[in-house]
Every structure is written in C-alpha cells, then in structure tokens.
Nucleic acid binder design. Structure first.
Length: 481
RNA sequence: CGGGGCGUAGCGUAGCCUGGUAACGCGCCUGCUUUGGGAGCAGGAGUUCGCUGGUUCAAAUCCAGCCGCCCCGACCA
C-alpha cells in the first residue's frame, strides 16, 4: 500500500496550475497566510530568497550611480491628490489611517501605495539649482494596495519592493535613465533568476498613473500567461509640476526637472516559481537558492553514522563552504534518506550531495541535479572546483530551458481568427499587428482576455492590424497575471 | 463588487440532512527496531467544532447576522 503523504502532496501542474502554485508556496515553506486578506507571512526560506535577490539588485542599483534612502510610510491625503491621474489611478486601492491616538485625524493619511507623492514633495525642498541634479535615489520598502484578488507573491495587499525616484535636467536624460533601469531589471532577472523576459513599452491604457511613458519586462509563466516582472517609468514633468519642483538652470531660467520612477517587487519570487518549478515542487536558480547544495549523509547498514559518514560529511561541507558554495548538511536523524531526497527536491535545492559508506570507500560522492535527477559521481578531492562549475551549468541550463519554452510558446498570427484560436488553446505570447487604437485593444481584451504586454523597443515594425487590417505596428499580446 | 464552494487538533478530513458528553489519517512526543527513494511496532499529548446571537432540557449539527479563505468573473500603476 502507498503510504499516506498528505503533508507532501503537490497538485500536478497539468491538473490545476493555480493549485500547484499555492501548494508549492505553502509546502516549500516560502510563505504562509496572515490574518488579513492578502497580507502574507514570508517565511525564512522564502525570505532568504528575497534577501539574495535584494543583495544582487541593490548592488546593480548602486553600480549605476544610485544611493538608498528611506521615506515615510504615511502620506497626507492632500499630497496624493496633487497629481490628478496619479490619485485617480491609486485612490481605489489605498488604505487610509483616519484615527491616531484615539482621536480622528484632521487629515486622513494614506498608507503608501507607491511613493511618488511623498518623494516628489520632498524633492521640491531639496532642489534649487541645476547643480542639485541629477537626484538618483532608491528605497527598499513595503507598500500597500487594497487588491480585490490576492495570491501569495503574485498580487498581495502588502508587498516588499524597491522603488527608484530620480530627477534630471533634460527629457533625454530622464529617458536614458528610464531605459537604463529597464536594462538593469532585464539583466537581473535573466542572469540571476534565469527568467527570460520581453522588454518594451506599455500602451497608454497599460501605463502607470501619471506617467509619460511606461516600460516593462514581461516573463512567460508555465501556464502560458505573462507576468509583469518590473516597470520603469519616464514621468515627464507631470510630477515636477504637480509637486512644485523648480530650479534655476544654467541660463538662470526657472525650470522644472524631468522625473523617473522604477520598481521591482517580491512578485518576482512568484514569477521565478512559475517559470522553473515542476510537479515535484520548486526549482531554484543557484544564484538565489538559500542552499545550493544539500548534503544527505547515508547511514551504514550496521553501526553508527557518527563513526564515519557524518564526520566525512562535515569535512565536505567545510571544503565546499571554503569554495564559496552555500551548502547545508541534513543531519536530521528522525527522517530516512528517501524522505530527505523528496523534501529537498520539493524545496528546489539545485544539487543533492549523497555521501554514504560506499562513496567514502571510493573517495567520492554522488551529485544529483534537481531538474533532471541525473547523477554524477564526483571525486571528493576535486569537489571545490567541480561544484561551482556544475552550479554555473545548472543556472545557464535553467535559462536556456525557459528561453526555449518562451520561444515555443510565442506565435505569430496573421488573422484575428487565428489569434482567437491560439489564445483559447495554447496561449503564450502572440505577436501581431495593431493599429494603435485603444478601442481595438479593448475589444481584443474583451474577446480573448489578452492584452498588449509590450510594444517592442526600437523603430516600430510595420504590420497590418490583426483586427482591422489597417496599417499598424507589431506588438506582443498575452493574457496577464 | 457579482456567482459558487468552504471554515471541526499543526495539516487533511468524517460527523451536520435526522440535535444527545467530538472521531479518523498525517504530523508531534517517548521507547525499541529500521535507514542507498517518502519506515514499522508499541505507548502518549493535543480540538469550548471561525465569531456573535437565537431556538432547545440539550447545538459542531437547526436559524440569523458577521468575519475569513479558495475558485470563476468584473476590477487591477
């Protein structure tokens, strides 16, 4: 009889992708539900992933000349209302603090849904001269948006993110900054999360409330839906105007600066799960895996594993640590070997290192890859060189596999019928022409649930509109998370 | 916000229709035997049944209101 496995069961992806995702998040102990809808608890294993992402992203943000700061959580209502489009876009999802110290406040305070209002108001005080520019500030913070439908990591009421807010003298500089950060995001998710993304500009209907232009990176998930993984906005002079930011330029003229903002969030964790995971659970890219290798010591048939196996395992752990590998030794004695195999597979650890009496006799260990379970015997003597190499290979294989999936699930269509058929059956990205009319965009969304994820960068590629047949440009469609 | 489902031990559930002292599996604790793919046996601990109120001699069960979670839809920089 098959033993009961209630705790460990994960719904197969093909049965119910949504349920699979939730099972993985909960059972791999990335997150747990909190008492308030949409407010999740990020557990240590999930938070370790976030910390690894943060560390790398933070380095990239600083390398491109930005510094970190921290602005307040609470934003006065009047601040939020200064930019019309912005408040219209965000007020439906704002949470308000109206009571403080037991007394009704004179002015309600919004819990920040984003910090443009707060930060631009501050910048108005800081900027007097062209010599004060550019301002290149990033903050790591939590924000709150009262979402109607929430899912761990993908769309939560409270989430963690970084938001960059910059000011520039010219439109060109602001545009350059916007695109530079989009590039930082793209290389981060591809190099670190092994998640290939499409980058491009959003249509007006999809752009940020109050922005001049919004750019985004879009990844394709295992179920054929797209996930926006990061955005970068050229805010034009709208916010400078609304928040009264002015300075004297080199010609002694009183002018407004150009601003940008850009952000990535814990949502990327959800994207990474849905990009790489399989029916056995998570698969983590080595670069952000809390444990890159887990040593599973195998006890001898007769006798105590403390005699030979465990001491050797500790030695191997030390050896790999010295080589800069994040390695965990699973010396729990309450679980059997098979249980540990399944457990670490579910948690997505890239390599399992099996070490038993037979291996020790041969001065070797066996490394097992998480994604295909292939086993490689490796001499203990060469581990510190072999393992980093295998990790690098694993990382690039993950990216390759995801790239192939994206390519295999991108369809160029020439007729609207074909569009509808592909979107109903296979989904994925659809490349098609669009005449630039928001009404057409809306109709497509209503009829197929697909939206324009991005307009590709560079000069528009001419293509007949898939709906009207009129002259248009090539854009990328998908159903979105 | 509309439609549907659900809330009983840490987790998964039965019991509810037809009211009568709360049950099963996993997990947890102790001991022994095991251990190269999710161990076995024995003994134990743990639930005022989402909340509030009502009906009743008696409520997990019937009634009302509320709260929360999940799915579908609408909405979602």
């Amino acid at each position: 009889m098959e033993p009961e496995r209630t705790m460990k069961e994960i719904t197969p992806r093909s049965v119910d992708f949504s349920q699979w995702y939730l099972d993985v998040v909960l059972k791999a102990e990335l997150a747990d539900y909190g008492p308030v809808k949409g407010c999740m608890i990020i557990r240590p294993y999930g938070y370790a992933i976030w910390e690894a992402m943060q560390a790398d992203m933070d380095r990239r943000i600083k390398e491109t000349g930005h510094v970190n700061a921290y602005f307040p959580l609470l934003i006065p209502k009047s601040y939020l209302e200064k930019e019309k489009e912005h408040v219209e876009g965000f007020s439906p999802e704002c949470a308000w603090v109206t009571i403080g110290g037991g007394a009704e406040l004179e002015e309600p305070l919004a819990i920040r849904p984003t910090s443009e209002a707060m930060i631009c108001s501050t910048y108005a005080k800081w900027v007097q001269s062209w010599r004060d520019l550019p301002i290149l500030i990033n903050q790591w913070a939590n924000v709150l948006r009262w979402e109607k439908v929430t899912r761990p990591f993908l769309r939560t009421t409270e989430f963690l993110w970084q938001e960059g807010h910059t000011l520039h003298e010219t439109e060109e500089q602001a545009e350059e900054e916007t695109l530079k950060m989009l590039g930082v995001y793209k290389s981060f998710v591809e190099e670190i999360l092994a998640m290939p993304v499409l980058h491009g500009r959003k249509t007006d209907s999809e752009k940020f409330a109050g922005a001049l232009k919004t750019y985004a990176i879009e990844a394709l998930m295992g179920d054929g839906k797209a996930l926006q993984a990061g955005t970068s906005h050229n805010l034009g002079q709208h916010f400078a105007e609304a928040y009264g930011i002015e300075y004297l330029d080199r010609n002694q003229q009183r002018v407004r600066p150009w601003s940008t903002s850009w952000g990535t969030s814990t949502r990327m964790i959800g994207g990474m799960i849905m990009t790489h995971g399989d029916d056995n659970g998570l698969i983590l890219p080595p670069k952000i895996a809390p444990h890159q290798v887990v040593i599973v010591p195998i006890p001898p048939r007769k006798g105590d594993w403390n005699e030979a196996v465990l001491p050797k395992a500790r030695e191997v752990q030390k050896q790999l640590r010295a080589a800069g590998v994040r390695v965990h030794l699973d010396d729990r004695d309450q679980h059997q070997t098979g249980y540990k195999y399944a457990d670490w597979e579910m948690r997505g650890v890239p390599f399992r290192l099996e070490l038993g009496p037979k291996d020790i006799e041969k001065d070797q260990c066996v490394l097992v890859r998480r994604d295909n379970r292939s086993k490689t015997p490796v001499p203990l003597a060469g581990l510190e060189r072999a393992v980093p190499e295998m990790l690098a290979t694993f990382q690039s294989d993950l990216l390759e596999r995801a790239r192939k999936f994206q390519a295999d699930n991108t369809t160029r269509v020439s007729s609207y019928d074909e569009f509808k058929q592909v979107m109903a059956e296979k989904r994925g990205f659809i490349v098609a022409g669009w005449n630039g009319d928001p009404a057409v965009e809306k109709r497509i969304k209503e009829e197929t649930k697909a939206t324009i994820r991005v307009m590709p960068m560079g000069d528009p590629i001419e293509a007949k509109c898939v709906v009207t047949g009129e002259k248009g440009r090539e854009v990328w469609f998908a159903q979105a998370y």
